[in-house]
Design a protein around this nucleic acid. Structure first.
Length: 429
DNA sequence: TTACATTTGTGAT
DNA sequence: CTAACGATCACAAATGTAA
């Protein structure tokens, strides 16, 4: 039996969400003027993350450097992104979507798939149902969405990408030839720049060209797995299910680009500590431990390098992760100027049971574990993030003072005697 | 040879 | 004239290494 799948995509999500807030504050609607969400408007760095339709008319594209966008349109309004706002908007959006079917998949912060198969008693006309969802989101939340309607996820997603904004489109199997095959291959999901170039070289330019090509030829070019999948996609085939349960995280990473090039280890270590702290905290919140730690750096020519090492036993202790990251950095960085550094934790496992190692300093480990726990408690109390080891140590803001006092408290009550430890050479307590 | 780890490349939002 | 430039996640393939 045929399925019925919707894909719902918020139009220019970050920009729309900023607009809704600004309207509440009596500010002009960013959607009506050339505007974009992107890097720091004062520094004039960063890239375009979302753009208004007027901005698009100037040829501004998502992902392009802000400097280029400003050249195309000097009066472009640039707004910094505010992820906390987006998370709230996303929740409200998904809550409405979820009220139409129990089977919803969150595909990203601003996209969902709905499996509407078997909802025909409640919603006998799929197109009418799609309009109802779209209009209700607009009415209640103030921003527009596109809805794609078809019999599988791929076709629904392709359909929602047709004309924007505020539209419902169908792409049923009998419409593939007219609506999808004339499109350039780049429009196909998971077909990016590199595969486009290779396919163009053998004369494949449209999705129809790809559909009619021999699968073995495509596999020879793009690899057996990807080649097979992209060929199937071009034919409109996709039997993957709408997954209600988000997959568990398989890794955590943090990376930062700097205005100033990094040229000394003294610059590297505080950043690395901050990043290790952030990713380890996120990992503990998901009750995971990692077996592998990787450091990443990007040189001035934009080439990325990464190096990883694996522990004997999985850990979630910030200090152990930081020590490993420092070691990797010292070992592999030859001193070339860097514009980005990052840390990634992979090879995750559940944290529930403890792997004991004979040679570990268990008392020391217990100290670090308690410190992590104390910090995590504080972060919880003050609304998560922002509070890191470095910030608590260095800042003199009211919140940092409170956090420091709190931390002392937590530590003392937990171990029943006072800690008179100062700050060691790593910036740890 | 196989198994596993590591590194690089591609693609998504 | 060109190149310019974010963060985070997943996965496949290529490459390296040990049993």
């Amino acid at each position: 039996m045929d399925r019925l799948i919707f894909h719902i995509d918020v139009n220019s999500a970050f920009l729309s969400w900023e607009s809704v807030r600004r309207i509440d504050q009596g500010l002009p609607d960013l959607r009506d003027i050339p505007a974009c969400i992107g890097g720091d408007p004062k520094k004039r760095t960063g890239i375009v993350v979302a753009k208004s339709i007027p901005a698009k008319k100037y040829g501004i594209q998502t992902g392009e450097p802000m400097a280029m966008a400003l050249r195309k349109c000097p009066e472009l309004v640039i707004v910094q992104s505010d992820f906390d706002l987006y998370v709230k908007c996303s929740r409200a959006f998904k809550e409405i979507c979820a009220s139409y079917t129990p089977i919803m998949e969150s595909f990203s912060i601003d996209e969902v798939f709905l499996d509407m198969t078997g909802m025909s008693l409640l919603y006998p006309d799929p197109i009418a149902a799609a309009h109802e969802i779209k209009d209700r989101i607009h009415r209640e939340l103030g921003f527009t969405v596109n809805v794609g309607v078809s019999t599988n996820k791929l076709l629904a997603k392709m359909a929602s990408d047709f004309e924007k904004p505020d539209k419902v489109h169908t792409l049923f199997p009998d419409e593939i030839e007219t609506k999808m095959w004339p499109l350039p291959i780049r429009n196909l999901l998971f077909l990016g720049k590199a595969s486009e170039k290779k396919l163009n070289e053998i004369g494949i330019h449209t999705i129809g060209d790809l559909a009619r090509a021999k699968e073995t030829d495509i596999q020879a070019l793009l690899g057996s797995k990807n080649g097979h999948q992209l060929h199937q996609y071009a034919l409109g085939n996709d039997d993957s299910s709408v997954k209600e349960q988000a997959d568990e995280a398989k890794g955590f990473s943090a990376e930062t680009t700097f205005n100033e090039d990094i040229i000394s280890l003294e610059q590297v270590f505080p950043i690395l500590l901050e990043q290790c702290d952030i990713v380890a905290t996120r990992m503990r919140r998901q009750q995971k431990k990692c077996l592998s730690v990787a450091v990443t750096f990007r040189t001035l020519d934009f080439k990325k390098k990464s190096h990883q090492a694996t522990f004997q036993n999985a850990t979630d202790v910030t200090d152990e992760i930081y020590k490993q990251a420092k070691k990797l950095f010292r070992e592999f960085w030859k001193g070339e100027p860097l514009r980005l550094i990052g840390v990634a934790l992979t090879n995750l496992s559940d944290d529930e049971y403890e792997q004991l190692s004979l040679f570990e300093n268990t008392e020391n480990k217990e100290r670090h574990r308690k410190l992590d726990a104390a910090l995590d408690t504080i972060r919880q109390k003050y609304g998560n993030d922002k509070i890191t080891r470095a910030s608590i140590m260095n800042s003199n803001s009211g919140i940092a003072r409170k956090a420091r006092a709190q931390m002392q408290n937590e530590l003392e009550t937990k171990r029943g005697r006072q800690a008179k430890k100062g700050t060691d050479d790593n910036g740890n307590i």
